[in-house]
Design a protein around this nucleic acid. Structure first.
Lengths: 155, 155
DNA sequence: TATACTGTATGAGTGGCACCAAACAGTTGG
DNA sequence: CCAACTGTTTGGTGCCACTCATACAGTATA
């Protein structure tokens, strides 16, 4: 079923980079948002430095198997946040004043998803401890999938 | 701003019922899905019994301030699940074979939301314990809002 | 200058969700 | 019977998020 598609459940991408972007198409999280999240994280962690050039829109889009416009959307929003610097004809670079998200900002970024989960749980009468347990389970599952990806790269 | 609107952040509804439905419009959870969740819960908890008649589509829609079509959607899906029994001209009743969701089914119902939260968290590099903490915070917040609603009914 | 790379812009299409209006059809009770 | 309640169906609007395809425009370099 559509072998051109770069991924089915998940994908890791080794660009001309020291990092790999991992897109989970079935997670319900928009692709452009997943890109934003990870780029932000890699800058926070120091894996990408100020002034570094990011993959070109087309390269990245081809690499993760999505439409270039989707990448544009991620890059555009990150530029509006003062995080990236897009230069027509040259490329996209990490802005000089780019900085990782603060703890408060990280919390805020996750608040909507957390609220959605909690609202559904309360309406279904599910206990908070059960919810926490489910979150931990999901976390392990996602981590396990990441491990699988890394393993495949060694093979 | 639009005083006809029955609710802004949340709402409790006392129908000709011993239960009240609470819709959270800003939660990101579709209204029809919130209705499904709560009806399922009230059957599970015994607050609504097999064979009971539910509020009419138009009454419920008016009560919670949404369009009748939205209620129809919730009722329809619950009927497809064998949960409700719609009888033209008579009303909507809890099906004889209606039963609360099993633990496994509850877990599955929450899995998508949990996954979404977890995927974003990992991509942002947020620790699992931080995620759990955020979930607990949100839970308290939602609970506090429920308390506020109940308080207003006494005033 | 020509080519091959960059980013830019626009219009279209899809799907989910909520809303609205109007008509249709079955049931009940005065 | 008739009026007032039920649910049913249809078609439409609007909005938003996401994706796609296809052009357009600037930059670099051989």
């Amino acid at each position: 079923m559509d072998p051109d598609r770069a991924s089915d459940r998940g994908l890791n991408l080794l660009m001309s980079w020291n990092v790999h972007l991992r897109i989970d198409p079935g997670s319900g999280v928009p692709v452009y948002r997943q890109l934003m999240n990870q780029i932000r994280y890699y800058v926070s962690s120091g894996a990408i430095a100020t002034g570094d050039r990011l993959p070109s829109i087309r390269d990245l889009a081809r690499g993760i198997g999505v439409n270039p416009t989707t990448v544009v959307k991620a890059y555009t929003e990150l530029e509006n946040d003062g995080f990236l610097d897009r230069q027509q004809g040259r490329g996209v670079f990490v802005a000089d004043q780019a900085r990782g998200l603060s703890s408060a900002e990280l919390d805020r970024a996750l608040r909507d998803s957390a609220r959605q989960l909690v609202v559904e749980a309360t309406q279904l009468g599910v206990d908070i401890e059960r919810v926490v347990h489910l979150v931990r389970l999901e976390y392990q599952r996602v981590e396990r999938e990441s491990e699988t990806d890394r393993g495949q790269r060694h093979a």
